[in-house]
């Protein structure tokens, strides 16, 4: 695809460097990490992500949404959305990462850019409780029909407690941790504490 300001992206010796340079020129100086020949990670502020994605989708060879997923950074009070956008003909992917406020947990949908985003956003909505207004299947159960608990992929969802509740250990099981057992058996004790 021809970009009037920069020339043809396909001719560039390093597509990753070149696309990042164009994003920097157009949208701002986002931190970029060149991870390997086919992958560049860009940390984009939330306000810029939709413009960047629309631009990539419509005006560059980066036409494919390879995946979309979320990470819960509970300690930071943030969610991170990770969009992997690929230029299939140039064989380069951009990992666009956006931090969201965890308390608000809302992001703009990319459904009108990529059809399959509806399923990705449906799953993230179900598993993380992040809402994408305007995405067609928000709130519709995808995997967890009848689930009434916290979205289970959130870090504060306690998997162990859930398992103990729903799949109790069979009776008669008893484990001795060797460290504790040895210490007790051989009279280990502390003289200071």
């Amino acid at each position: 695809m021809f970009d009037i300001n920069h020339g043809n992206l396909d001719d560039s010796p390093d597509v990753g460097q070149e696309i990042v340079r164009r994003i920097h020129d157009r949208f701002g100086d986002f931190p970029a990490r060149f991870q390997k020949a086919d992958l560049v990670r860009l940390d984009v502020p939330q306000k810029d992500i939709i413009p960047v994605l629309s631009w990539l989708r419509t005006e560059t060879p980066f036409v494919q949404l390879t995946h979309l997923t979320a990470v819960d950074w509970l300690e930071d009070g943030q969610f991170e959305l990770m969009y992997l956008v690929t230029a299939p003909d140039l064989m380069v992917s951009l990992h666009l990462c956006v931090r969201l406020d965890r308390a608000k947990a809302e992001a703009e949908s990319v459904f009108n850019l990529w059809l399959q985003a509806e399923t990705y956003e449906q799953e993230i909505n179900e598993m993380f409780g992040i809402h994408f207004p305007g995405s067609p299947r928000q709130g519709v159960p995808f995997i967890l029909e009848g689930w009434r608990d916290m979205p289970p992929m959130r870090r504060d969802f306690d998997t162990v407690a859930y398992c103990d509740r729903t799949h109790p250990v069979r009776p008669g099981r008893e484990h001795q941790d060797s460290r504790v057992y040895v210490g007790r058996k051989f009279g280990e004790k502390g003289y200071l504490k």
């Binding site: 460290r179 504790v180 040895v182 210490g183 058996k185």
Partner: peptide, 17 residues
């Protein structure tokens, strides 16, 4: 690997792991 065998072997049973 925090097995604790050393605790038994140590005459003073130090809290090695």
């Amino acid at each position: 690997v925090e097995c604790g065998l050393c605790v038994a072997a140590c005459p003073a049973h130090m809290h090695i792991p």
